[in-house]
Amino acid sequence: MIRLENLTKQYGKLKAVNAINLHIKPGEIFGFIGPNGAGKTTTIKMMSGLLSPTAGHVTINGINMIKNPESAKKNIGLIPDRPYLYEKLTGIEFLRFTADLYHIPSDIFKKKADHFLEMFALKGRANELIEAYSHGMKQRLIMSAALLHDPPLVIVDEPMVGLDPRAIKMVRDLFRTLSENGTTVFMSTHTLKLAEEICNRIGIINHGNVIATGSLEELKEAASIGDSNLEEIFFRLTDEGI
């Protein structure tokens, strides 16, 4: 579903992402973890077409992001870490806007909008302007919008920021369900427990380099730690012990 080949991003002298290679299969939940400034968000931005790479390739569902960005983007539902939205639209209007961008017919939109607004507990506030929403509500609205067009790939940057415990549980279950139904989830997070709980594979990035990828067991092996959790593996591999 996702293929990153020698993906590089350079800002002046700083190499934010250094020739990374990743291959993520359909239906996988892939956790992408790393310290602040390691290159997670830059990688996500290149994968979702928000940023053009300095070198390398991004292929989404077999489509080259650089050559065919519009077609590649149709396969992605993006949930960024900061919920910037059109504040002067209402929740339902924003969903309608998104539906139009992805050519979702009106009748299907109505059913899906109803479903997601209900699921994300936004139904009662759908006709209010987004500027009146809390951070968590905006985040939930973005999630609804990202899933409207049934994307085969969901890219999430810090999914749990601003969400209440109920929403966190719901999102965790949602990602599992999506994965069971064949949707790939690429998730960047600092919540190591979440990554440990739901990810099939985890990639650790540090100083722009992917330093390890694999299942939790494989990472334990790479870190040469016996019975330990992801937090210990993370500190060992990134050399950032407390």
């Binding site: 077409g49 993006l78 939205l85």
Partner: peptide
Amino acid sequence: EGGAFWIVRSSPVS
């Protein structure tokens, strides 16, 4: 468009 410009860039519209 402000911070919401990501919506345009991530959408399937050039």
